[in-house]
Design a protein around this nucleic acid. Structure first.
Length: 493
RNA sequence: GGCGCUAUCGUCUAGGGGUCAGGACGGGUGGUUCUCAGCCAUCAAACCGGGGUUCGAAUCCCCGUAGCGCUACCA
């Protein structure tokens, strides 16, 4: 039996959970589950300026919503805590101290502004903007003396010569010349570790076996490998998954549309949709099958099916997929979701939501047209108004139809006596009227649709009548006829 | 600028020396039908370029080109 798999998702709480981060979390989760391993959540809050408690909470919330339960981490504990880097400062200090003692790190007294200026100067000269090792060359004793004087300093890792390569789980062999790696700061002046150092220390101490992360970390990997080695540790397996891009091929950001998991949730996307869709961004099972539940993904997910190419986030496909999932939900559940949306947005007065049985019927009538709860009202608004205010385009269609008002009146008359007031009798009456009039059923139905709902696109007309009820249906048909005749009086016959 | 990664329909992708280069989203057309949605059928749509290797290359190698990423006391 080999070493049990331990992976982690290590977000920095500097904003909401981005779909890219969610996808990374998902892949880690799936990898752990697939191999019967452990999925750790670690909060990388070493940047004091940008980390916030709200972001941390938002990340938990988004992950829970997606169903990505972590086995170890905040809230659930574990033997390798604490799981907030901000609570592990003494640990980093200890290992940094050891690097310093053994000559693998050195104190740097350069101040950040100078460094920035030097870096920019190097850039304009067309040179690689590396740290020039000023402080590495400090005469023996001077470093200690400056510390004794109370001068602030950072700790830099001394990058060895040579080259560094590893076998990436997604990309295969990757190599970097150490010369381009720079002597990175591992401990800031404020004694907080930087990412590359904290990640190494934690991944080792937490016995992480596989690091699955975004492509954007590729160039951090050789640096981290060198730190592992300087500490005498064995690096984990690395695998870099491609990034998620916007339609223009650049890193997905707000200007491409929604990016936060929570926003998608608020827009009515289901967690099963997000999970399934995100899984397909950079991973494929066989190129044919693409509907997967989380459980099925746990079974199916393997690293060798992860793509090397960045993926563009396709909002249309997301919408389609949500329709697939939404439609498959039981009617009661769909109604709950619609209700929840209506409530939270206050799109309708609370009184309109009191009759659940009615809402169930309305949701049923709207049917497949609704791919997200927020689309319900587009097909159902007519139910919640006293008098329809027709779309101009719909009304002009109606007004252009000769004989429409007369047929609306006749239909109203017919509806008054239909008994029982049910779908099939309504259909029979309507079609009967069309036959009597010598026109196609559509010539009666379309005008009725516009008169009843004010729109050209609605649920089935007999469902509309049922939902509206006899009295309101009749009134709306006559009302529309009145309005039509007022606008252009029917010629006397 | 340097370094790295990547390259199959518009998009997500399958395939990986010999295939009609497959599927999905989106789009077109036809059908069902009271509109739309849905469903069914159907069509269009791709191997970045150039050199090799080979009987044969989308597939292997090299070189370009392009895109993206990284180049912080951010992560």
């Amino acid at each position: 039996m080999s070493v049990p798999v331990r992976v982690r998702f290590a977000p920095s709480p500097t904003g909401y959970l981005h779909v890219g981060g969610a996808r990374t979390a998902l892949f880690n989760y799936l990898f752990a589950r697939h191999h019967g391993g452990v999925f750790v959540l670690r909060i990388e809050d070493t940047d004091r300026e940008r980390s916030t408690e709200e972001s941390t909470e938002a990340i938990y919330e988004a992950m829970k919503w997606l169903g990505l339960a972590w086995d170890e981490g905040p809230g659930v504990g574990g033997a390798y805590g604490p799981y907030h880097q901000s609570e592990r400062l003494p640990v980093y200090a200890e290992w940094a101290e050891r690097l310093l003692r053994e000559g693998n790190a050195y104190r740097c007294f350069c101040n950040p502004e100078d460094l920035k200026a030097r870096r920019e100067a190097a850039m304009t000269r067309g040179e690689p903007p590396r740290y020039d090792r000023t402080c590495l060359r400090l005469p023996p004793g001077e470093s200690d003396a400056r510390v004794a004087r109370g001068e602030p300093f950072a700790l830099r890792f001394r990058m060895p010569d040579g080259e560094t390569s590893w076998n990436d789980g997604v990309r295969g062999s990757v190599t970097f010349q150490n010369a381009v790696l720079d002597d990175l700061v591992i401990l800031r002046t404020d004694r907080h570790p930087t990412y590359n150092f904290a990640a190494v220390v934690d991944d080792h101490l937490m016995e992480i076996t596989h690091v699955l992360r975004g492509d954007d970390h590729i160039s951090n990997t050789p640096r981290q490998i060198r730190i592992y080695e300087a500490l005498g540790w064995t690096p984990p397996q690395f695998a870099h998954v491609p990034m998620i891009l916007g339609a223009d091929g650049t890193r997905l950001s707000k200007r491409h549309g929604a990016t936060s998991v929570t926003t998608f949730r608020d827009e009515g996307f289901l967690p099963e949709t997000m999970v399934n869709f995100l899984a397909l961004l950079g991973w494929a099972y066989d190129g044919e099958r693409e509907m997967f539940t989380l459980r099925e993904l746990e079974e199916a997910f393997t690293l060798d099916r992860v793509s090397k190419n960045p993926a563009i986030f396709n909002y249309e496909k997301l919408e389609w997929m949500n329709g697939e999932y939404f439609r498959a939900l039981p009617l009661a559940k769909r109604t709950d979701l619609v209700l929840e949306h209506l409530r939270s947005t206050k799109a309708l007065p609370e009184a309109a939501l009191a009759d659940r049985a009615f809402l169930v019927k309305a949701v049923e009538a709207a049917g497949d047209r609704v791919k997200r709860p927020q689309q319900f009202l587009a097909y159902s608004a007519y139910l919640f108004v006293d008098r329809v205010d027709p779309d101009p385009a719909a009304w002009s269609d109606l007004a252009a139809k000769p004989g429409a008002s007369g047929r609306l009146r006749k239909l109203a008359d017919a509806l008054e006596t239909v008994d029982p007031f049910e779908h099939d009798p309504l259909e029979a009456a309507t079609r009967g009227l069309a036959a009597t009039e010598g026109v196609k059923a559509g010539e009666v139905i379309m005008p009725a649709r516009i008169a009843l709902t004010g729109k050209k696109v609605t649920p089935g007309i007999f469902d509309v009548m049922l939902l509206l009820g006899r009295e309101r249906s009749v009134r709306r048909l006559r009302d529309a006829a009145d309005r039509l005749e007022a606008a252009s009086p029917a010629p006397a016959s």
